[in-house]
Design a protein around this nucleic acid. Structure first.
Lengths: 156, 156
DNA sequence: GCAATAAATATTGTGCACAATTAAGTTGTG
DNA sequence: CACAACTTAATTGTGCACAATATTTATTGC
């Protein structure tokens, strides 16, 4: 039972704090797993996008990553430089439009995908939570994101 | 191939990404409201704790804030210094135990609470989301946090 | 053709998070 | 008492986020 407080400013009544704390708790769970891959959490997300797009036969620009992850160049440029220094990807300015930088996986970046395959399972293992509950929560969060970003209702 | 990919590494299948994106989307919504108070989002959370504890007649140490927000001194020390420079609170090392720093609201910090009262309502206004859905989501996130932090089942 | 505008990325500066270390103070034990 | 173990906060260093601005290149209007 919740010690009821109608105070709109009570920390426990803030959905924002629940979101903030949950996000950090999940990230903390990921950290040791991603450490083994030599990735930070945002770097892992960027790699997910690159793996996904390469499988779909798509090339990827910095702006594609930005759109997908909702991050700007101020975040992505240094992040991609670090991944590039680790030899996981290349950053190449396009010749036909020199404003554009194309990001491509190296062989090493491609190989990392195999090791990453085990991360999602390892994350959940040991957690007492039903998969369908996670799916429902994920959908609820996606709906919330759509509402927050002011998009119209869609079928996603 | 399939639109609903069951690829465990697909970005849209990651609960972590939904959480990450939702948290940033909410924070972005807060930003203009908190700007008017001269607070960042984590600073706002710290103030919520201080307002709450003062109303309960409790004094607050740095470690109390850390426990409540799950933040360490590396985050809190500079954050509290900034709030102190703005005159919202004082940081004082206790004389009976000089390891401890006590954080106390100033009159200005206390007054800010009135203005903050309107933030939660303003945040939701314009958003097409039912309050009970938010309450359910909040509870689901709290459950998730408890599971992730490995705490035993509690009554909250 | 060329100025004005737009687009794509990079840079700079501020403020978190968090790991690792340090420093100072307190407590428990022989 | 001495001194190790522990507690609390501060410091240092790395890596995001994000606003604001800069830089370079393309496109558009005339």
């Amino acid at each position: 039972m919740e010690l009821e407080s109608d105070d709109v400013l009570a920390l426990d009544n803030q959905i924002c704090f629940a979101l903030y704390a949950a996000n950090r708790a999940v990230t903390a769970r990921y950290r040791p797993l991603l450490d083994e891959l030599g990735l930070t959490y945002p770097q892992y997300l960027a790699m997910l996008v690159l793996w996904e797009r390469e499988q779909a036969g798509l090339t990827t620009r910095v702006s594609d990553l930005g759109q997908r992850l909702r991050l700007d160049s101020g975040t992505l440029t240094p992040l991609l430089k670090r991944l590039s220094e680790r030899g996981l990807l290349t950053r190449e300015r396009q010749s036909q439009d020199e404003r554009v930088v194309t990001v491509a996986l190296t062989e090493s970046g491609r190989r990392l995908r195999e090791r990453a395959q085990e991360v999602p399972e390892q994350l959940l293992c040991g957690l007492e939570i039903e998969p369908e509950r996670l799916v429902a929560l994920r959908q609820e969060l996606k709906d919330m994101i759509r509402i927050l970003e002011g998009a119209a209702a869609s079928s996603d």
